[in-house]
C-alpha cells in the first residue's frame, strides 16, 4: 500500500468530516459543499481498491491479512453513498452532521487499511 496516498486520503477525509460537522452544527442544510466531501472520498476509495489490486503485481505485496484489508475497502465504499442517501432523504442540519461522521469513519478505515496491509508478522 502507498503510505503517501493513505496520508493524502486521511487528510481529505478528516477535512471533509470536520467541514460537514461544522456546517451541520452551524445549521446548514445539505448542500453541494457538504456533499462534495463524501463524493471525493468515494473516488479516493475506488482508487484505493484499484491500487490494492495492482500493487502486488508491482512488487508491493500485503504483509497483513488481505481478506481483512478487502473487508475494510468494501465496508468503507458503502459509507459515503449511505451517508449521502440519508442526507437527501431528510434535508436537515443533522443529516450534514451524519455525513461528517461518515467521512471521519472513512478516515479511520483508511488508517486501518494501511496498518493491515503493512503489518509485520502474523
Amino acid at each position: 500500500m502507498i503510505l503517501g496516498y493513505t496520508t493524502f486520503a486521511v487528510v481529505v477525509a478528516v477535512a471533509a468530516g470536520v467541514l460537514a460537522i461544522a456546517l451541520g452544527l452551524a445549521g446548514r442544510k445539505p448542500s453541494d459543499l457538504s456533499l462534495a466531501g463524501p463524493a471525493v472520498l468515494e473516488l479516493l476509495l475506488l482508487a484505493q481498491l484499484v491500487i490494492a489490486i495492482v500493487a502486488p503485481a508491482a512488487g508491493n505485496r500485503p504483509t497483513g491479512n488481505p481478506i481483512e484489508f478487502y473487508a475494510y475497502v468494501v465496508g468503507a465504499l458503502v459509507i459515503p453513498p449511505a451517508a449521502v442517501f440519508w442526507a437527501l432523504t431528510e434535508r436537515t442540519r443533522w443529516s450534514v452532521v451524519v455525513v461528517g461522521v461518515g467521512c471521519l469513519a472513512v478516515a479511520v478505515m483508511f488508517v486501518r487499511m494501511q496498518l493491515i496491509w503493512s503489518v509485520q508478522g502474523s
Partner: peptide
C-alpha cells in the same frame, strides 16, 4: 430526525 440521527449513524458505523 434531529440529533438522534447522529447517534444512529454512530451506532451504524460501530455495528459495521
Amino acid at each position: 430526525s434531529g440529533p438522534g440521527r447522529t447517534l444512529i449513524a454512530f451506532y451504524g458505523v460501530m455495528t459495521l
